[in-house]
Simulated assay, not measured.
Amino acid sequence: MEGTTSSSELGAVVVGVDGSEPARRAALWAASEAARRERPLHIVYAADTDGRALYASVETIERVRKAGRELLDETAAAIAEQHPELAVTTELGRGKPVPSLTRSAALRGTIVVGSRGLGGFSSLMLGSVGLKVAAGATTPVIVVRGPDERAEAGVVLAAVRDENDLDVARYAAREASLRKSSLRLLHVWNVLESVGNVVTMLDNVEEIAGEEVQHLTTVADRIREEFPDLTVHATAEKSRSVAGVLVEASQNADLLVMGGRRSSGYIGRTLGRVTHTLVHYADCPVQLIPRRDGEEGDQS
């Protein structure tokens, strides 16, 4: 990925609204995140009036813009009630939602989007705008997931595969520090992927397991050194489903932080099989950290 953020500071927060309840929830969550970071919040409503101009009347365009302004004002007012000290700006965009959000985040840091949340099975799934933002972002993206009302777990969870995930672990450590929470570094490895399907290679499982744990230990030791006041737990699990273990672990976390896809392909440059599953099914908000071009590839 281009332009992964390796700064020691978490950036400001950008959130998109569209009048839906999931977007409103995402905006309130984003406000809390911005307050924790002591950074401003930027609320975007993408009216797409440029795209409508070819077939809509001037009156229709003005109604759309008026509705957008009212939504932005209402959202900002609701946030001000909960976070009166927070600096909030709003933007009525003329373009489509995805480029409007990514353009704003290029200057302001982290994008927050809501899950679809329409009820029933569809409530598990991420909407098309959120999916496109997550797939193509070059700045961190947080997908707000999980139940509306849930007691805080006091844990930030980070998915760690190897030393290339040190930047991901740093992001998670900063989030945990802001929340005064503990950090859990979780490494999940698939023995079948590691040894292939040749039965005779299973003799090497213990050796492979030791190598897998060493990757996690290296990252954990570095994080403990850089964040001496943070409680860090490092655990490794063997499973046939990396995504399944992470979804289950997300039930006991306030935020799951993981790196985007390391190689191009699948759904955009960020979403692979594992990350795609997590943004649809995780039980807590998921923060995706873009990777650098040239990092060698897993399926995440």
Rank of each mutant, 00 (worst) to 15 (best):
Gly3Ala: 15
Gly3Tyr: 15
Thr5Met: 11
Leu10His: 07
Val13Pro: 14
Val15Pro: 06
Ala23Met: 06
Ala27Thr: 08
Leu28Ile: 08
Ala34Ile: 02
Arg36Ile: 00
Arg37Gly: 03
Glu38Ser: 12
Tyr45Thr: 02
Asp50Asn: 13
Arg52Phe: 09
Arg52Asp: 03
Ala53Asn: 10
Leu54Thr: 15
Ser57Pro: 12
Ser57Val: 04
Arg63Leu: 09
Leu72His: 04
Ala80Met: 02
Pro84Ser: 01
Glu85Phe: 08
Leu86Cys: 00
Thr89Gln: 06
Thr90Gln: 00
Ser104Ile: 01
Ala105Glu: 07
Ile111Asp: 01
Val112Thr: 07
Val113Arg: 14
Ser115Met: 07
Gly120Arg: 11
Ser122Tyr: 06
Leu124Ser: 02
Met125Thr: 14
Met125His: 03
Gly127Pro: 07
Ala135Cys: 05
Gly136Ser: 13
Thr139Ser: 11
Val141Ala: 05
Ile142Asp: 00
Arg145Pro: 02
Gly146Val: 07
Glu163Arg: 15
Glu163His: 11
Leu166Gln: 08
Ala169Thr: 06
Ser181Cys: 04
Ser182Pro: 05
His187Cys: 01
Val191Ala: 06
Gly196Phe: 13
Asn197Ile: 13
Asp203Met: 12
Val205Pro: 03
Ile208His: 00
Ala209Thr: 15
Val213Trp: 08
Thr218Asn: 02
Thr218Asp: 04
Val219Asp: 05
Arg224Tyr: 00
Glu225His: 15
Asp229Pro: 04
Thr231Lys: 14
Thr231Arg: 10
Lys238Met: 04
Ser241Trp: 08
Val245Phe: 10
Leu246His: 14
Leu246Ile: 10
Glu248Leu: 06
Ser250Lys: 10
Ser250Asn: 03
Asp254Phe: 05
Asp254Asn: 04
Leu256Cys: 07
Gly259Gln: 08
Gly260Trp: 11
Arg262Thr: 13
Ile267Gln: 04
Thr270Leu: 08
Val274Ile: 13
Val274Tyr: 05
Thr277Trp: 00
Cys284Trp: 01
Pro285Met: 04
Leu288Ala: 01
Pro290Trp: 07
Asp293Phe: 10
Glu296Asn: 12
Glu296Leu: 10
